[in-house]
Design a protein around this nucleic acid. Sequence first.
DNA 1: AGGATTTGCCAAAACGTTTTGGGAGTCAAG
DNA 2: CTTGACTCCCAAAACGTTTTGGCAAATCCT
Lengths: 336, 336
Amino acid sequence: MANLKQLAQSLGLSITTVSRALDGYDDVSAATRKRVREAAEKVGYRPNASARRLRKQRAELVAVTLPSDPGHIGPPHFLDMLSSCAEHLASAGLNLVIAPVPRGESELDICRRFVDGQRVDAMLLVRTRRKDERVEFLQSRGIPFVTNGRTESLVPHPYIDGDGFAGFHAATVRFQVAGHRRIGHVAGPQEYYFAHVRRTGWKAAMDEAGLNADLCAEGAPTEQGGYLAALELLRQPSRPTALVCSTDEMAIGALRALREIDGGNAISIVGHDDLPTGAFTSPSLSTMRMTGENLGASFASLLLRAIAGEPAEELQELHAIEFIDRDSHRRPMKAA
Amino acid sequence: MANLKQLAQSLGLSITTVSRALDGYDDVSAATRKRVREAAEKVGYRPNASARRLRKQRAELVAVTLPSDPGHIGPPHFLDMLSSCAEHLASAGLNLVIAPVPRGESELDICRRFVDGQRVDAMLLVRTRRKDERVEFLQSRGIPFVTNGRTESLVPHPYIDGDGFAGFHAATVRFQVAGHRRIGHVAGPQEYYFAHVRRTGWKAAMDEAGLNADLCAEGAPTEQGGYLAALELLRQPSRPTALVCSTDEMAIGALRALREIDGGNAISIVGHDDLPTGAFTSPSLSTMRMTGENLGASFASLLLRAIAGEPAEELQELHAIEFIDRDSHRRPMKAA
DNA sequence: AGGATTTGCCAAAACGTTTTGGGAGTCAAG
DNA sequence: CTTGACTCCCAAAACGTTTTGGCAAATCCT
């Protein structure tokens, strides 16, 4: 309730001195500083946020855009991640606002609103596209941002991403080593960077092994999308014996397709994301996930460093992918 | 980039007129209004948020506190709910900031920081306790808020809640009707309102049927908590034949306990929340959930109406509970 | 003692809006 | 011609901070 003016008046000091005392400047005597701080503590004074923001020309806010498409929010522990990110930002005086995209508006509109109204000091972007207009816009405005996922932008920007290429390459090679030759890929929408790079990893492994990389079907990054794409692959004349799926959600859909087609026992499958549900499917879903703990803290750190002006090249994290082996990736193979 | 002053200058008008033209006051001529609006559009002018907030004495922000305890975030589609809430708030010019509770600080500290710094116009509280200090604080400060879950506060406050009593009462009666007599309850921490009221519903149904309500074990609202509590009940001399669990997470833990004890086939079980994973457990988990669609929109609406000053009594929503029947609630009963 | 430096404080400006309280000019009625 | 009403615009104040630039008084040096 109290403001600086009242506090100053009650102490018989000027606004300036009280402000500087609270901020710990040393051009106010130790005695006064102590006196001011005690008084502030007693009345529970906290500076008015809007006033400080206006004066300091900083919004003390970071926005994260939440896509509202189906299959929208990728990672499983996304809210935990946001929460942790918000927590770390908070200790630097920044708050995290969530900015969902209303239907009829583009994510770009949202960015524009936040940036041009000077509502935020930085932005956090998730679910990047290969060619991402949000990235281009923010770069043109020179406002700091970090993405979850890379893009094909020519000018580098800060990001955190999993090494989808290596992960899907390795997963495919594992199947090859296990004797599979017809390995299919249930792909996500190729406009998304993550989906594209995962497909590329699968394809490279097939090419290197001299195998046919034509068993690939694309679908929405949802259970239903995975179901339909898997069905398409299973209807091929020479059916795949193993399926590498772009996401766990899609993999769960693929499991449903398998159940319908052949009881689901003959075809091996692997997903990506380590969705909690995967532990409960039957067969339980083998999967992969990005390594690294407390991603939220990493995002917060990158954001703060981006705001501080560190160059983008130093703010890029590419994390290795690790396997979570359960049952679905090693089904008994039918003789060829 | 542009501000009102520059815009006014370029138009040869005063700041006042430009401001009022943009706000649609009718004391500026239609012609000028049009001219101003077009110019504003062209340069992409957006009022500086901090300045407007300072002047209007409104933060244009709503905070939601995120508890970071284990078993923290209750509902399954919580992020979807927040996202939808944020979207609806946004169309009223409010943004939603997420306020996780750092370790070492209480949720009350967080509320205090946001309220006393005048950072928010309202707050959204989740996971209420029977006696909730956050509620008391916000009431004493007179700042609008809505809770997800009731409390035992003597002075009424806006909330949205499921009718846990009726739901758990009905679930228990269903078991009774199916012939069960030893119906246990896997309870969440009784300091939480939801956990308390659910237990009360179970107990009332047992009492009314003249059955012994002593098969009750309490645990953390997590998979592990449910596992331990169920184990405790299963070790009783007269073991329950059915289990009503406070949450799906706990129910899943209880399923694990059942599997360890007797293969999990003899005991019926029901949870609450409709966790997506429940569809994949074995047996698949029967559960309940609060009815009502687009809760996010409801929260947003209550928040806006609370800010507008509507009395708390008119801002309370108690939603019925509906059953989602899968397999776990009707296991073949052993003969008694 | 006289100048230079340091210490402790403060008045005023600035951040960019919105709102208050008019003030010219026009027009119609008396 | 005066009066009143109406239209369209504006100067200035206010919101509560932080920061700039400076001013007395006290302290230090020779």
